[in-house]
């Protein structure tokens, strides 16, 4: 590991100004992603500001919805009664991720900002535009089984690997951020993570030094009919090949409102807006779910090794919607 300076922030403003002052400074939360990347020499911060003692660990009712603190642990978030009752989709997504030990350490803020699992990104012997801009994309002509089928660019075909954010995209959460000048701003979830474009080194739209303080969940009526489906290569402790966060609000058999977001397919949680548009006002039937899935996946652009994700995505969307209709049971 390269030598670095470590401080523990006493308050949010102090954390933000310290990190803002140095381009190579970073926040440290649970460390489950950042420390791994430092050991692999991928991340090379010269200064770490520990934010875990800041007062952002609450999960509380707010504005009709729920506010979850940035430093609250994944485990505590998933199991909080307000989340379990009102946003079971989020509980399922968090519990489908990583392992018990990691979720006990991982924070919500750190989770949003976890970096891709592209193995060329992790391997400093390999070219990677995200790690070292301008070196090329190792995965583009490499083994890109775990990579994107939507929204990628020649510069980067990586996926955002997390689960929690896929549910948050479907729930249309907002991210609350403390800025350098001491003000607060909120970012709609759809605008939080980015597509790679020409700047794959930027995973999201936070400015350097901006601190996530909370994630706001608006009130909704999806709690009875939602489901997080994660397809992966072992039963636990594996990143998604494809995942689907599905949420429905129905009247009789008619879909009044629907949200669909996909994980493992793009550089950000991928809202399946085409499918949502198609389904709104239609009957909640397997046939319609399959048509919607078909429609969404038509625009996919798979790479050499991940063609299977298109068919898998189709099936996963339809199945997740069915499970959501069944009250979110597996």
């Amino acid at each position: 590991m390269r030598p670095f300076k470590y401080t523990r922030a006493s308050d949010a403003m102090n954390a933000v100004s310290t990190v803002s002052a140095t381009t190579s400074a970073k926040f440290l939360a649970g460390g489950t992603n950042l420390l791994d990347l430092m050991k692999e020499d991928v991340e090379r911060p010269t200064e770490l500001v520990d934010v875990t003692k800041l007062n952002f660990a609450q999960i509380k009712a707010a504005n009709g919805g729920v506010s979850i603190g940035a430093t609250a642990k994944n485990t505590d978030t998933a199991n909080h009664p307000l989340i379990r009752q009102n946003y079971p989709l989020l509980t399922q997504a968090i519990l489908a991720s990583a392992s018990g030990q990691i979720r006990n350490m991982a924070t919500n803020g750190g989770n949003l900002n976890q970096r891709t699992r592209c193995s060329y990104f992790y391997d400093v012997a390999m070219p990677c535009n995200k790690r070292t801009p301008g070196t090329g994309c190792g995965a583009l002509d490499g083994v890109n089984r775990n990579h994107a089928i939507f929204g990628w660019s020649e510069k980067c075909v990586a996926t955002y690997p997390g689960d929690m954010a896929v549910a948050l995209a479907a729930l249309e959460a907002t991210v609350k951020v403390q800025t350098k000048d001491g003000t607060e701003r909120t970012i709609a979830f759809a605008d939080y993570h980015r597509l790679p474009g020409d700047a794959p080194e930027k995973d999201n739209n936070l400015n350097h030094g901006e601190l996530i303080t909370s994630i706001e969940l608006p009130k909704n009526n999806f709690a009875d009919k939602s489901y997080y489906l994660k397809v992966r290569e072992r039963a636990s402790y594996a990143f998604a090949l494809v995942s689907v966060a599905a949420a429905l609000e129905t009247k009789g058999n008619v879909i009044e409102n629907v949200r669909l977001a996909l994980g493992g397919v793009a550089h950000k949680p991928w809202r399946a807006l085409e499918a949502e548009k198609f389904l709104k006002g239609k009957a909640a039937t397997e046939v319609n779910f399959k048509l919607a899935a078909e429609m969404e996946m038509k625009t996919a652009k798979p790479l050499e090794y991940n063609k299977f994700k298109v068919e898998l995505g189709r099936r996963a969307i339809a199945r997740a919607l069915m499970q959501a209709m069944n009250g979110g049971k597996a």
Binding site: S99, S119, A235, A238
Partner: peptide
Amino acid sequence: ADYHVPSNL
């Protein structure tokens, strides 16, 4: 994380 030995589940 990439080489998947079976987990308990």
